[in-house]
């Protein structure tokens, strides 16, 4: 067995919980995109080329409501900007790699692979096979996402009229299930409340501009609430 195969396999194996977690979202994404009226080629292309789940969901909802191109691109930017943080965090482990490795691993960078790889590389200082481990997680997540997207597309095509059955509700339920646990933190709650109110008030703005406005308001509110909360603590008083 090639010595490279061992870390490659370990990366894929350690990503297993993430693979299982992503599966239903891949199916829901594929089905939802088809039910929204997006052609199969475009649905598969989103998974194969963009490969960023939450922004794919948001894009489906924006395409379905006829948002303008710059709004979709800008929203994608905002939703995926956290990947820059992952890119920066993992840089110390990738600095020594050839360019073709860094260009490839960057393409496959996701929340899941970041979590798995960062955890492993932080614990183990021997970086010799870290790249293969990282690649193993990347390929497993990528193959998994494509597979479940295809299954979702096939499901969407075989059951016409899924949108009438209330599949559009699946998007709302999915987003609500993701957000709700985060609301236990006060600043996140503030961010969500502000974003929700602004989105509701600005829902009639053209090109879904209300979404950008709401996101900005929410983020600003969250940052402000966090600052107020920390300035209230006694040990932080000197810094305010």
């Amino acid at each position: 067995m090639s010595p490279r195969f061992t870390p490659l396999w370990a990366g894929a194996r350690d990503s297993l919980p993430m693979l299982v977690g992503a599966a239903p979202f891949g199916v829901i994404f594929g089905t939802l995109a088809i039910a929204t009226g997006i052609p199969a080629w475009a649905t598969l292309a989103l998974s194969a080329l963009v490969f960023a789940g939450s922004s794919q969901f948001v894009a489906v909802s924006l395409i379905g409501s006829g948002a303008a191109l710059p709004v979709i691109w800008l929203t994608t930017f905002v939703v995926n900007l956290r990947h820059a943080l992952y890119s920066a965090t993992l840089l110390p482990y990738a600095r020594h790699l050839p360019a073709r490795w860094r260009w490839s691993l960057a393409f496959w960078l996701t929340d899941e692979t970041f979590a798995v790889v960062e955890h492993r590389l932080r614990q183990q200082h021997d970086e010799s096979d870290g790249a293969w481990y990282w690649l193993g997680s990347s390929l497993a997540m990528y193959g998994n996402w494509q597979l479940w997207t295809v299954i979702g597309v096939l499901l969407g095509q075989s059951v016409p009229g899924l949108a009438d059955l209330g599949l559009d509700f699946a998007m709302v339920a999915t987003f609500a299930a993701i957000v709700a646990p985060q609301l236990k933190k006060r600043p996140v709650l503030v961010a969500a409340l502000l974003a929700g109110v602004v989105a509701l008030l600005a829902r009639d703005l053209p090109f879904k501009l209300g979404l950008m406005l709401a996101a900005l308001a929410g983020v600003a509110g969250g940052v402000l609430a966090e600052r107020l909360a920390t300035s209230g603590k006694p040990e932080m008083k000197e810094t305010t």
């Binding site: 905002v78 600043p187 996140v188 974003a195 829902r203 979404l211 940052v223």
Partner: peptide, 16 residues
């Protein structure tokens, strides 16, 4: 700021 992006964007989609 990035910390608050997912909650803000998703809630902005959900509420309307």
């Amino acid at each position: 700021a990035l910390h608050y992006v997912p909650a803000a964007v998703l809630t902005a989609l959900i509420v309307p």
